[in-house]
């Protein structure tokens, strides 16, 4: 399955059920290449209980799992202190 095909599965609930299950932390699940695979970033440092491959319509798709993910934030929140006019 190539990256374009994986993109059509990456936001399906079934895909998330298979990959993250009942994990309730912050995460990012995307598609990477060389080879085509799902890229999962999760908060725990220990990622041993996340799968390294999932079955998508009979095709075994690798899952690259990376731990120690920090939940992203909208990045305008930094405020600037300025002197009154």
């Amino acid at each position: 399955m190539n990256a374009k095909q994986l993109m059509s599965y990456v936001d399906q609930p079934e895909t998330h059920q298979k990959i993250v299950g009942d994990y309730d932390g912050g995460y990012a699940l995307g598609v990477t290449e060389n080879p085509p695979a799902f890229l999962l970033r999760v908060e725990p440092e220990d990622v041993s209980h996340f799968p390294t491959a999932v079955d998508i319509h009979g095709v075994k798709v690798p899952v690259v799992v990376k731990g120690s993910f920090v939940r992203p934030v909208p990045i305008d929140r930094g405020t600037q202190a300025i002197s009154p006019d």
Binding site: D11, G26, T32
Partner: peptide, 9 residues
Amino acid sequence: AIGTVVGPI
């Protein structure tokens, strides 16, 4: 990565 689902933000 592309096609990424990310959250909660």
